[in-house]
Every structure is written in C-alpha cells, then in structure tokens.
C-alpha cells in the first residue's frame, strides 16, 4: 500500500525552479531515501511532504488523500532535523512527551519510557538536552518522532552532524528500528554509503528531478545515467565503439580490452568503470598503458590515479606504485549505461 504519494510536484523560489515534476511513491513500511548532492532540492521536497512548504504544482497524498489543505500539525508525521531541534527548556522526557500530551493519550509516561528505551536511552527522562552528546540528542529526536507513531517519518540528513564512526553506528540503528517497528520513512542524505546501507528504495536526485528510482542494487549496478553512476565513487566513463566481442575503440582511437563481453560490434557504448573494476599490471607491449599520477594510501588498499589515452582513471591496487610508473590497464568489469534518450 502506498503511504505517501508525491505526484508531479514542482516548486520554485524567486523564479528559480528547485523541484520539477517530482513523482515518488513511498510504500507502507519501507524506507525510501532521497539521495543527491547539496542544493538538488531534497530538503525542499521533504518539507513539502511535511507541510512546511507548499508545492507550486502537483499534489502530495497520504494514504490516497490529498493533504494540500491539511496543515503540518494535522498530518500525523514525525520529523527529524539535522540539528536535532530538541527544545532546550524541556527535559528529555518532556521533549518526548510533548506530542503525546497534545494527543491526550493515556499512559504518556510509559510511552516515553518505551520510546527512550528503544533508542538506548532508558532512564534519561530527566536529563537536559544540552547535557547530551550529539548522537544522544539525535536519538532523543528520533524517540520523540517515533513515539507519536507517525504515518511517515521524515528525516533530513539526521546523521550529518555526527562524526564518521558514530554515523555508521547510528545508521545501522535507524535501519534496525525500522525493521523492528516497520514504520514508513522518507530519508534525506547526500551520503551514498548511508543510502545504500539503509534504504529499501533510493531516489537519486539531481537539480530538482529524480534521475533514477530503484533498490540500492539497481542504483549501484544498473545506473541509468552518468550522474547516477558518478555518484558512487571515482568513476571513469569510456565512450567508444565496440570493435570486437571484448574490445572497444575510444573516441580518441585507443583500443581497450575488456574482460566482460560487450555484445555486437559496431555499437556505440558508454561504459562506467569503478576503481575496483580496473586491474593494473606490469607494462607490456601492446596493452593499454597508463602513467601513475598519484597514489593515495587508504589503509587496506591503495587508490591509484593514472592517466591513460588522455583519460583519468582510478584503480584499487594492493602494492605500492610511484608517480611516473608505467602500468598496463585492464578493465575487469564494467557497467554499461543505457543509450541517452
């Protein structure tokens, strides 16, 4: 069942189009992520769903009902902000209880205890929000939103203010909570790893449009545009014509061998090549030779940047190389982008 349906939503600020004809369905009990670079309109879309902003065109439907006339406070949503937005003059318990009290539900105290326990903050009711760490504050914010059993939980870069290791821990926790409680969520992030890890569905956004909508595997292995492919790491695009089962000629004339088959010769193709797909070997005669530009030590592996036939490529490589070294480049795997329409 569709919990939230965004239909043809457009929005401009001061004459500048920020969202253009957005179509998005969030199925009940799933976590959908809006992924895209800063400024692409993710927050604006989320705020329109929340009712903080209003669409210029299009509709937002909750359970099939248009909510254009329903103000935020009657939409039954939960919202988690990047800066937590806890109320500093209330205790942690009062923060979580606030919305429950407004609903005049019985058993507020017990609900608050449960909500805090769920996020690992049992017994912290009386703490002042300001005395908690960033991660704890965001947990409170999550508990506050979830305590209300929202029809949809909206999260705007909830982990961006946390440091790297905590971010990883927290996104696993969000995912765990989501699987356990089965709530519906629309999650905004610019972090591709975060999106891959926690989403049921990812919507990759670029300049106010959704470039691609799909499962994390879809998005990662079957990107439909260069933008989507480029969003996940240092990708090189090889444009050329297939000349053999496993070879193509780049537009510059260089012949490149691939390990995976390319299909019928004569086709024009665009291949996306990720660092893990590139193998480097000792330079031999006749291969595709590249020159090492820079080597980045990443701990478990090294990332090598090289130039070959005027292109910049990135490759993972286990052993040290030095700038200026000549290497043989093989494309062990590749993604083929569908022809541009």
């Amino acid at each position: 069942m569709t919990a939230v349906h965004v239909h043809g939503v457009s929005k401009s600020f001061g004459g500048r189009a920020v969202l253009q004809g957005i179509e998005l369905e969030v199925a009940s009990g799933t976590l959908v992520t809006l992924l895209g670079p800063s400024g692409c309109g993710k927050t604006t879309l989320l705020r329109i769903v929340a009712g903080f902003e209003h669409a210029d065109r299009g509709a937002v439907r909750f359970g099939g009902v248009d909510v254009a006339k329903v103000p935020t406070w009657e939409r039954g949503i939960g919202f988690v902000f990047q800066n937590y937005a806890l109320w500093p003059h209330l205790t942690v318990g009062e923060n979580v209880a606030y919305g429950l009290r407004l609903q005049k539900r019985p058993g507020v105290e017990k609900a608050v205890q449960e909500a805090l326990a769920r996020v690992g903050l049992a017994g912290r009711e009386d703490a002042q929000p300001g005395t908690l760490s960033g991660g704890q504050q965001q947990r409170v914010s999550l508990a506050r939103a979830l305590a209300l059993n929202p029809r949809v939980l909206l999260l705007d870069e909830p982990l961006s203010n946390l440091d790297a290791s905590l971010r990883v821990e927290m996104r696993r926790e969000v995912r765990r909570l989501q699987s356990e409680l089965g709530f519906t969520a629309l999650y905004v992030t610019h972090d591709q790893d975060e999106a891959l890890e926690i989403s049921d569905v990812i919507a990759v956004m670029n300049r106010g449009v959704i470039e691609q909508l799909g499962t994390p595997e879809d998005i990662y292995f079957r990107p439909r545009t260069e933008f989507v492919a480029a969003f996940f790491g240092e990708v090189t695009f090889l444009r050329g014509q297939v000349v053999a089962e496993r070879a193509l000629t780049l537009s510059g004339g260089q012949r490149v061998e691939t390990t995976a088959p390319l299909g019928a010769p004569g086709r024009s193709v665009v291949l996306a090549v990720r660092p893990a797909d590139v193998r480097l070997g000792p330079a031999t005669n006749g291969g595709w030779v590249g020159t090492v530009e820079q080597v980045f030590f990443l701990g478990g592996r090294r990332l090598v940047r090289l130039t070959a036939a005027g292109l910049t490529l990135h490759a993972h490589h286990p052993v040290p190389l030095r700038p200026g070294d000549q290497v043989d480049v093989t494309i062990a795997q590749h993604l083929e982008l569908p022809p541009a329409t």
């Binding site: 902000f81 937005a85 806890l86």
Partner: peptide
C-alpha cells in the same frame, strides 16, 4: 531560537500559536 524547534513542535501536533507560547516564549 531556531525555526526548526518550532517546526518540530508543529510536526508533533502543536498549532503555531501553541508552539509560540510553549516553545518560543519560554526561551
């Protein structure tokens, strides 16, 4: 007082006047 604090109150079901009196004014 960040706007987000008010918006968080709206999302929790508080009308704007209520959010003003209960969230903004006390601060």
């Amino acid at each position: 007082v960040p706007v987000a604090q008010e918006e968080a109150a709206w999302a929790s079901g508080a009308t704007p006047p209520r959010a003003f009196f209960e969230i903004v004014l006390p601060q």
